[in-house]
Amino acid sequence: MLSRRIIPCLDVRDGRVVKGVRFRDHVDMGDIEQLAMRYRDAGADELVFYDISASPDARSVDVGWVERVARIIDIPFCVAGGIRSVDAARRVLNAGADKISVNSPALERPHLITELADAFGVQCVVLGVDSLRDADGEWRVRQYTGDPSRTRALPRRTLDWLSEAQDLGAGEIVLNCMGSDGVRQGYDLEQLKAARRLCRVPLIASGGAGKAEHFSQVFEQADVDGALAASVFHNGSIEIPELKRYLRQQRIEVRDVA
């Protein structure tokens, strides 16, 4: 049986891992390779690196660190941030990333998803979606969330966008539920269940993890393929080996921790 994946997300700026509240007040957390190794040794199933220096400046990811990470880690990793063309994606993949993730650029130009899938196969193409419930009760997508001063609420309904993106060639979807993000009260099960009903491709939950029970809830109730989290792993409030032991006890299939 396919294991449920535990995925730490690391924000990268200028070749360092940083932690911050959105776009401001970033604290240096250390060297990318060291943190990548630490999570790999703890039993992370996959890593996502979000290059936050790239997107707002409209420049592409610096691939030097991608190659350094690819050399040392032996689990898959995905790179997000600032990828808006087939050429930019190729540089990242050739440097050794296993997948690339696109978000705002795909909203600007949805056909980008198809171009990436045609060039590299759907298995390389992850769509990141930032979603928030509006006053009328509908979930709609947000764009440019990396910079609060530029964030835009779009008229596009989240569920419509997920369907469209799959048809265009997205091979995996990371749904970041902004309403629960950073609050640590649990993943947005209602939204993730709705997304699951129409996702044929792997679906990854993002936003809201605060304790181990939140992971078992999201796997059992929303049937997601993976759960992504950042702060609870970075601050050590959840240790991955313990989390996996807990999930095992709940009879959730996870990969062995060495």
Partner: peptide, 15 residues
Amino acid sequence: AGGEGLRIPHMGWNR
């Protein structure tokens, strides 16, 4: 073939 609860691509860690 995929199917109920079986996503395609088959992506992740399996035994």
